[in-house]
Design a protein around this nucleic acid. Sequence first.
DNA 1: CTTTGTTGCGAAAACGATTTCGAAAGAATG
DNA 2: CATTCTTTCGAAATCGTTTTCGCAACAAAG
Lengths: 345, 345
Amino acid sequence: MGSGKGNVTIKDISLKCGVSVATVSKALNHYGDIAPETAELIRKTAREMHYIPNTAARQLKTNTSHNIGVLFVDEMNSGLTHEYFSGILDAARAEAEGLGYDITFIGKNMGGRPMTYLEHCQYRKVDGVLIANVDFSDPGVVELVRSGLPVITIDYAFDSTSCVMSDNMEGCYALTSLLIEKGHRKIAFIHGERTSVTNKRLVGFNRALRDHGIEPDDRYIVQGRFHDPKKSREATRYLMELPDPPTVIMYPDDFSYIGGMTELEKMGLSVPQDVSTAGYDGIPISQFLRPKLTTYHQDAEQIGKVSVRKLVETIENKKTCIPEEISVSGYVLEGTSVASLQAAP
Amino acid sequence: MGSGKGNVTIKDISLKCGVSVATVSKALNHYGDIAPETAELIRKTAREMHYIPNTAARQLKTNTSHNIGVLFVDEMNSGLTHEYFSGILDAARAEAEGLGYDITFIGKNMGGRPMTYLEHCQYRKVDGVLIANVDFSDPGVVELVRSGLPVITIDYAFDSTSCVMSDNMEGCYALTSLLIEKGHRKIAFIHGERTSVTNKRLVGFNRALRDHGIEPDDRYIVQGRFHDPKKSREATRYLMELPDPPTVIMYPDDFSYIGGMTELEKMGLSVPQDVSTAGYDGIPISQFLRPKLTTYHQDAEQIGKVSVRKLVETIENKKTCIPEEISVSGYVLEGTSVASLQAAP
DNA sequence: CTTTGTTGCGAAAACGATTTCGAAAGAATG
DNA sequence: CATTCTTTCGAAATCGTTTTCGCAACAAAG
C-alpha cells in the first residue's frame, strides 16, 4: 500500500477537497481566514491521504529548514566516542526531535572540496547550530559564531551568543572540598588544556583550598590533556616521583584517570591505600571500576536538552532573545577511591 | 564582507556573465553543450562570488537531497554512548562528508506527533538510510527496509538489502580457539540477546570447540544481554556457583565484562588466577583495564566507512547494484586476562 | 544555392509549497 | 435599497534550481 512513487502533495488534497492549494496550505498551517469546517475537512483528508509536507519546497519558500546543525570535533576519537559528549549529543537529538527539528552534522568539507563551517551551514540552511568540544579559537568556528546565525556553545562562552555550561567551578569546588574534608592536604590536580573549562575548574579548586585555609602548592598543579590516558600516565608518574608526593590526584576526566590508574599500578601503588584518586564526568563505567571512582558527575543529558531548548528559543524569537549563560549543575559521585586521612592538622 | 542577507544565486552569476541561468546551471554541472571558455568563465565567477548552491531548490527539482539518514536506537544509553556504535557513526559521518553527503538522524516522532521511520525519511527526503543497533523485528524498521529506499543494515541481514557485518563467526572462532590453545576446556559463554549476531557467534564458538575435539557443555552457555553490566553480573555469579565452574568466561562485549569483573571481585575471585575472562569489541578502555582484557576487536571504523560507501554506491546505481553481504574482519587483542593452563589433556 | 549537421545557448516549464492581494458573498448598517 | 464590513476563499507570484526543446549561426556536403 502506498507504494506509489510520487508522494501526495498539497495539490492532490486541494483536488480531493474541491478547494485551491492556497486554502489547503492555510488550513494546514492554521491560518485564521479559513472556515473551521473547511479547515477540518482539509486536515482530515490530509491525514487520510498520508500527506507529508515537502521540506524542500517549504524551505525554499520560507528560508527555514527546521534543521539544526551540530558541530562536534571530528578528528581523533574525542568527539563522538567521548562519553560525556556523546551523552550530550544523544539528549540533544531527542530533544530536537520533540521540538520538530532534525539534526545534521556540520563538517569542514563537503564532497572533497573544503568548505568553512559557515558555508556548510548555509549550504544545508540550518536554522541554528550547536557547538561543542571544538577548538573555539579556530577561525572557522569564530566566523560561524560571528555570522549572526543562532548559535549555542557548550562549555565555552562567547559574549555574543548564549552558552550552556556545566558548573565547572562549583563542581571542582565541591570535589576538592570533599577531598579536604577527608583529611587531604597535599592535593594534586592534573588539569586539561587551558580552555575556559579548565580555568573555571582551577578557580573552584583554588577557592576550595583557600576556604579551608590551605596554601596552594604549584608543584601539584600539572597540565595534562582531556581524554588522554597517556598524557595522564606521564603526569601521574611525575607527581608520584616528587620528593613529597601528593596524597590524592584529581584527573581532568574519568577516561584520563584510567590511564593514571594503570600507571599507579605499574608503580606498585594501590588506590586508595597508597594514593587516593578522583575523576571528573561520572561516566557510567567509572562506577564499575574497582575501586569505584569518586568523581563529579556532569549532567550531560540535561546539558544536551537545555542547549537545544535554548537554541530553538533563539531561533524562533531571534530579536527578543538575549544571550544568556546557562549553568547546569551536577553532583559528586562518591566512590571508594578516596581514603580518609584521620591525621588532622 | 559578504554580510548580505540574500545569498548569491545562479541568477546573479548569469547577470554578471551575461548569459542565461540555464547556461550557468549547465556550466556548473559540467554539461557537454557549453563552450569550454564560457564554462570556465562561469565557474570562475561563481567561485569569486562565493556561490553556494541552494540545496532546497536543487532537492525540489531533482528529488535527491545528498543526505543520508541514520537510524540508531534512541532509548536507553545503548545508542550513541555505546563505543562500538559511536565508533561506527563517527566513521560513517566522516566518510559521508567526503562523498558529499550529510547525515541526519532518523527518529520515530517529529515535533510531538508520532511518525514512522519511513515517513521521517520521506519528510527529510534522505537518499538512503543506515540502520544499526535497532530491533530489526520492529514493524517500523521492516517497513523502512521494504520501502525500496536504499538501505544498509549493520550486523543484521535482510535478503533484500545489502548489509555490513562484523565477522562474528570468525571472530568468535578465533577467540575461542585462543582460549583452547591456552589449555582451557571448561569455557563459559555469556552471550547477548538472540539476534543474528549472537547466532553467528555461537556458531563460531561451537565450531571452535568441535574442531578441537571438545564437547560443548550446555550449562556453560548462558544468555545475557549486550551492553548490560548488571545482567552479566548475575550470569557471572550463576556460572561461578556451579558445582563445576568454568575456567574462563567469555562476555558478549567489553562493557558487559566490566559488570562481570566487579562481581568476580566481590566473590573474592581474581582474574586471571582464579578464572580467566574474555570480552568482545576491543573498545579503547578495555586495554586500560587491569588485567588488560583479552578481547576481539571489531573494526568499527572500517564498518562505518564501508557501510557508507556501499550505501552511496547503492544510491547512485540503484538499478545495477545488487544486495551484498560485506564482512569486515577484526582481530584478537590479547591482554592478560586469560591464564595459560598447562594441564594438557 | 540549397540541404543537412553541428555547436552553443536561451526561453520557459516544471518542482511543491507560502503568501499577498483582491474578489465574491453575505451580514450589518444607514 | 444602497453602502460598508466581514468572512472565506482563490489567482498568481515567488523561492532557486534543473532540464527539455528549439532556435540561431555557421560549416560541410550535395
